[in-house]
Design a protein around this nucleic acid. Sequence first.
DNA 1: TTTAGGG
DNA 2: CCCTAAA
Length: 699
Amino acid sequence: MVLQKRIEYGFNGYQAPAMPRASRSVRRRAVFQRAEDKQKCSFDLLATVAGKLLQERENAAISSDTLSNKDQCRFVKDCHDANKPSKSELSEDGNCDKKSLNEFPRPSIEDHAKIASIVTSSSCLERFVAKKLVDGNSHIKMENVTSEVKLDSSGYPKESQFKLDGNTGKGKDAMHELEKIPIGSGIEMYSFRDPPDENPPALISLGGSAKLSGYNDRIPRSLLSKGCDNVPVVSRDDDENSSGCTHPINTKTKAFRPKNCIDDSGISKRLASNFQKVAQKPKHDTLSNRDGIWKKTYHNQRKCNKSQISQMNIPFKKRKLFNYKSVSNSSGFTRSGGIYYSPKNCSNPDACDSLPGMHRDPGIPSLEACQHQMLCRIGSHGMRRLREQLFMYSLTCSVSSKRFLHRTVMDAVTAVLGGELHIGVFLQGKKVRDDSKTLLQTGISHHNQFDALGFTLEPNSSQSLPIVCAAHSPCPGADVTPPVLRCPSSPAVIHQSIQGNSDTLPEHQVTSFGSQFESDNDSAPYPANTSVDKGMEDSKELVTVLEKGREELAMVSVPQKPRRSEMVQRRIRRPFSVDEVEALVQAVEKLGTGRWRDVKLCAFDNAKHRTYVDLKDKWKTLVHTARISPQQRRGEPVPQELLDRVLVAHAYWSHQQNKQQQKQQQQTETVFSFNRKGQGLSSASGHVDDSVLVSDFCC
DNA sequence: TTTAGGG
DNA sequence: CCCTAAA
């Protein structure tokens, strides 16, 4: 039997392999080759694309400086009008002075459009998306997307809806489809938001021909929406996880509404915040535990909590992990283009705004100063780190913060790091070894992709000496240099854990800039340098050991640490479709039970998310399903015909196995008896397993 | 690494 | 889907 039906597997491009059975090594080589062919799904390419986009965007940003300038100025002005106008940062001609511009400028509508055009016109992305979107002629459209916070128990949006090639998916299915698209394709960053009442749903076309024009005539309308709670989010971009909540241009700032205004890129704010701290010189962070709530306070500063916001798009089950380190925050936020700023009712806007932009501490060093200091202080080690940060930025950050980052770091990074670097990816501390996996296959969904992601930069050179990097809080005197940059300069690989809840992975964490209180591992239930993760060892990558006994941590004890079992993320449940079941049944009919690796290679070779263990498990459940009454069955109904085949195949191969066992037993006994007679000859040498023969024709 | 089986 | 002993 041949798998006639080629199963089009969403975006995964699954198809029945036509690989002849060969030696194991040959087969593996072939597998790897295919994996290479599918690099569009790989992290490697992801990094490449990110880099390319970054470069293009950087160029475009330079060329569009004039345009952006005014908008940025307007933004600054708006902010000051909306809040408490202080000294004007506008020069007389209406342009911002350089200083304020260098702070995270708000991306304007034009910026959005421009970015959209850049991204859309990116050949890299186009190719990426085209391939991903089935044959390159398809469009992906998102319509009528609804609030993302209506999550069901599985953490999926209940009512999200999108159209893909005319097929409408809902809820879980829709999410599954979206999540199959790897990061970097520009799709997965779609946000799910309530469409505006007065406006038709935002609709984005990403077809090959849909460039700026197609984008443009849709973007402004949504971007011009007034509040963040009624903005149809059109943030889409490989890395352009720009805010779904556009800045209210003509309206007053609104209090942050978590239900409807959720940042997709908590990481962006964290990073932004971290970078802000580079410039803002955090003064004596302290942690105090009051009423079970951990608070981080600056001297004379009220630190607005962003983690609360950033975790909003994380499924509830994960969200609770944040609780113990949540910073209480009674004041609202309004999001604006990647920037949070304090609402009007913030009694102390300057203090409330720990992010750059509106209220600049006069003591903040200028960008140039920061730049200079960074350049001076950052060794090659730090450069890698920065490049890593840059990569993360490219995936997560808003336009504005990226621009800031670019201006600050890009030159230095590119100057120092010329060679190619491999970006290793960690998920929940586990090295993602298979670069050919999509993010979803790896277990990174848009829900969690930033809460437990870590990256390593793995130099191509032979530098592999693992150096422990004790990255931590800023030491006195190093106020400007981000703590992580003080890692000992070495060719080691830096492991950066980028996650909202850093405490889920304390032993592997290099804290981001200024994330002092994320590294409180003193009371970790296991030693900080215990290598829990084999992948870390195997890849000889840097195991981060956080320093203990830091002053500001001495008083810290974490109320509870997630046990290790909680740290490893469960894979996303991906129910078998009928087509998959059919393929499985066919394969098992041919190969038999007990040869799951071959079944995998035969029928699911291209479905990277199905392991042979999965197939074995599925077969188990299939057998069980076939034996129970149809009323007791759940999930997508499997055709009775298939279930019958399952029973038949199972019975047959069970019988075969029994026969085989009996044979072997007999042989053993025979050999044993021969041996006893002093005639120890193997009698099984000429035997050929017929199941092997069968399998030869399978694939 | 793969299989087998319990959870 | 996870975990893990055993091969």
